[in-house]
């Protein structure tokens, strides 16, 4: 098992290196001199030369990359132009907000997607299955920022039930925090719920037609026990893996959701950085997202092996 995990971690290293190369070369896409962008209003030649020295911009490009990577590995992702804070501490500050949003969205997706998927599989080709499929298709096709806008219009503006924006840290006022995050997590989680429903349905349909389900029925077990203990337990495996994979996807979806509901998280950080031309922050966020995404892929792989006895035996 440990050898398997170690091998997977080793395999992630070249992937991360390629991503770092991509993130580094992004700044080379910038038209003009990056130092002039970095210096902003400051046009003092000595200051500009100091910046050039600091970021090794007088060196050949491969050396620049190595210097940049070396700094990144030590946690130095540069300084934000806008706030003068180190990029890493800026990200660390915003991450808990986005994590709360992601966890709530995931919970919502699981609570809605899995029961709907089971129901659709058990009632295959009935009206219930049909309605669930249409709902899932809609969930996958709606632009989540538009859904957010429409919900604000309906729930906040017309009905006045929930606040339209703002953020309350969970440990300061848990109830208010959950309340303000309710709509955003629905918006972020609904596409996930749709995806979850589709996978649960197809996985359950596969399992329900297998021999051991027929045996369980023949033994005279109740339908509930057949579906939940014998059926779902075996169908849950791909869903666990999917959840870990989709959790990374949530980080990306959070960009728009946080923008709509003005939640001061990770996603809003990258958008604000884009508009203030705070390129070090953009690069830092992309790098960290990729890192998080790869970690989640790793966890998905490990979970898959842990939960699947046949895979475990082959290690």
């Amino acid at each position: 098992m440990y050898a398997f995990i170690a091998r997977r971690i080793l395999l992630a290293i070249p992937t991360l290196l390629i991503i770092s190369l991509f993130v580094f070369s992004l700044q080379k896409l910038l038209p003009g001199d990056p130092v002039l962008v970095m210096a902003g209003e400051e046009r003092d030649p000595a200051g500009i030369e100091a910046l050039r020295e600091k970021y090794h911009l007088n060196d050949p490009v491969p050396m620049q990359y190595i210097a940049w990577l070396g700094n990144a590995l030590q946690g130095d992702l540069g300084i934000s132009l806008r706030t003068n804070q180190p990029v890493l501490s800026l990200i660390a500050e915003k991450l808990p907000v986005t994590l709360q949003l992601a966890v709530m969205s995931m919970t919502f997706a699981l609570l809605l997607g899995i029961p709907m998927g089971i129901l659709a599989a058990v009632k295959k080709n009935t009206a219930i299955d049909y309605v669930a499929s249409v709902l899932a298709l809609s969930g996958l096709s709606v632009a989540n920022f538009w859904l957010g806008i429409m919900l604000i219009l309906l729930v906040s503006v017309h009905l006045g039930w929930l606040p339209a924006s703002g953020y309350q840290p969970f440990f300061v006022d848990p109830l208010l925090s959950l309340k303000t995050m309710l709509m955003p997590s629905f918006v972020l989680g609904n596409a996930l719920a749709a995806s979850m429903m589709r996978h649960t349905r197809s996985s359950m349909i596969g399992v329900l037609s297998s021999d051991y389900i027929r045996t369980a029925r023949a033994k005279g077990l109740s339908e509930r026990s057949v579906i939940l203990s014998h059926g779902f337990r075996n169908a849950v495996l791909p869903i666990v893996t999917l959840s870990a994979l989709l959790f990374g996807e949530l980080l990306a979806g959070a960009v728009l959701t946080e923008q709509i509901f003005t939640i001061p998280g990770f996603g809003k950080l990258i958008v604000d950085a884009v508009f203030t031309r705070d390129y070090a922050v953009v690069q830092g966020v992309v790098l960290c997202t990729a890192f998080g995404f790869i970690t989640m892929n790793l966890i998905a792989d490990v979970l898959y092996v842990l939960l699947n006895p046949r895979m475990r035996a082959s290690l």
């Binding site: 070249p14 992937t15 991360l16 390629i18 991503i19 991509f22 993130v23 992004l26 700044q27 896409l29 910038l30 990374g248 996807e249 980080l251 990306a252 979806g253 960009v255 728009l256 990258i270 958008v271 884009v274 390129y279 953009v282 690069q283 966020v285 992309v286 997202t289 990729a290 995404f293 790869i294 892929n297």
Partner: peptide
């Protein structure tokens, strides 16, 4: 594989920002 390890929208935002 490396590019698949980055969320679609984040890559697109980063590229659009720098382009």
């Amino acid at each position: 594989e490396a590019f698949l390890a980055m969320p679609f929208l984040i890559t697109a935002i980063a590229l659009a920002a720098f382009l």
